[in-house]
C-alpha cells in the first residue's frame, strides 16, 4: 500500500494522544491546575491534530461530517464517532481538573475506555480488510493498542510502566513482522485464483491493460526493497521500543531523559507505521504481475 504521509502521521500522532488521554482519565499522573492543563493541552493537540491530518487525504474534506453516519457497519465511521466522543467526554473532565482541582472519576474512566476504543477502531479499519492479508490479523489491533498505551505511559511520565510496556511492544512488533511476512501466502490468493486460469498452467502477465500508471497501482501497489525494509525494522525496533526503555531505566529521571525517550519513540513509531503501510501487499497487485 502507498505509505501516504498524512495517514502515517495521523495514526501515529493521534494514537499517542489517545494513549495519553487513556492514562489521564484514570488519574495517571494525578495532576490538577496548570499542570493538568499542560498535560491535556498536549493530549488534545496530538489527538485532534492527528484527526486533522487525516482530513488531508480526503478528496472532499468539506463533506467529512457525513462520515459520522455509518457507525453500524464501517470501522472508519466508528473511529470518527468514537474520537469525537472521547474528546467531548474529556472536555468537562479536563476543565474540572484544571479550574476546580476536582477529579470526575467516573467520567475519566469512561473517557479512557472511549480513547482505547478509538485506537481499536482505527486499527480495525486496516485489520478488517481481507484484500490486504498482512493487515487482516488480530495482532494489528494488539499492536496499535500497545503503541498507544506505551507511548501514552511515556508521555504521562510513568517511567517504569513505560519501560516495561516498551519491552512488551518490542516483542509484539517482532511477532507481527514474523507473522505478517507469511500472511499473504497463507491467504491463498495467487495470479491463478485471481484470473481463474490456474487449470491452464502458470499465469503470467503478458501485457498490462494500459501503458501508463493508474490509481490502483499508485495507491495499492508499492514495493519496498528488502534491505530498506530490514534497516527500517531495526530502526523501528531499537528507536521505538528498546532504546527508550533503556533510557528510562538507566538515565536518572528528568525532563531531558523524558524528551530523549519521546523523540526516540516517535522516530521508531513513524518508521514502524511507514513499514505497516509500505509492506502491506494488496491482492490487486496479482492482476498486474506484482505483489
Amino acid at each position: 500500500m502507498h505509505p501516504a504521509p498524512s495517514i502515517i502521521v495521523f495514526t501515529a500522532i493521534s494514537g499517542l494522544g489517545f494513549g495519553l488521554l487513556a492514562w489521564l482519565g484514570v488519574g495517571v499522573p494525578d495532576v490538577t491546575g496548570w499542570s493538568a492543563f499542560a498535560f491535556f493541552f498536549i493530549a488534545y493537540a496530538l489527538a485532534a491534530g492527528g484527526l486533522m491530518a487525516s482530513a488531508f487525504h480526503l478528496g472532499h474534506p468539506e463533506r467529512a461530517f457525513k462520515a459520522f453516519s455509518q457507525w453500524r457497519s464501517s470501522w472508519l465511521s466508528r473511529e470518527a464517532v468514537l474520537s469525537v466522543a472521547t474528546l467531548l467526554a474529556f472536555g468537562p473532565y479536563a476543565l474540572a481538573l484544571w479550574l476546580f482541582e476536582t477529579r470526575l472519576g467516573l467520567l475519566g474512566a469512561v473517557g479512557s475506555l472511549l480513547a482505547l476504543a478509538t485506537v481499536f477502531s482505527t486499527s480495525m479499519i486496516y485489520a478488517s480488510l481481507r484484500a490486504v492479508p498482512r493487515w487482516n490479523h488480530w495482532l494489528v489491533p494488539t499492536l496499535f493498542l500497545l503503541y498507544a498505551i506505551s507511548g501514552g505511559a511515556l508521555l504521562s511520565g510513568e517511567i517504569y510502566a513505560a519501560a516495561l510496556l516498551f519491552l512488551v511492544l518490542a516483542g509484539a512488533q517482532l511477532l507481527y513482522w514474523r507473522t505478517g511476512d507469511k500472511l499473504f501466502h497463507a491467504a491463498g490468493s495467487t495470479a491463478e485464483t485471481a484470473t481463474g486460469l490456474g487449470f491452464m498452467g502458470k499465469v503470467r502477465q503478458l501485457e498490462p491493460p494500459h501503458t501508463g500508471p493508474n490509481y490502483l497501482l499508485k495507491e495499492m501497489v508499492f514495493v519496498v526493497g528488502r534491505r530498506r525494509a530490514e534497516r527500517l525494522r531495526l530502526i523501528a525496533l531499537l528507536s521505538g521500543a528498546i532504546l527508550p526503555a533503556l533510557v528510562l531505566s538507566i538515565v536518572p529521571a528528568g525532563h531531558l531523559a523524558a524528551a530523549v525517550a519521546v523523540l526516540l519513540h516517535v522516530i521508531g513509531l513513524l518508521a514502524a507505521r511507514w513499514l505497516f503501510f509500505a509492506e502491506a501487499e494488496h491482492v490487486v497487485g496479482l492482476y498486474y504481475g506484482r505483489r
Partner: peptide
Amino acid sequence: TDCIGCGLCAWACPYG
C-alpha cells in the same frame, strides 16, 4: 454527492 473521497472502498475491493 455523499462520497468524501477517502478511498477506503478501493482498498477493500480485491479486484481493483
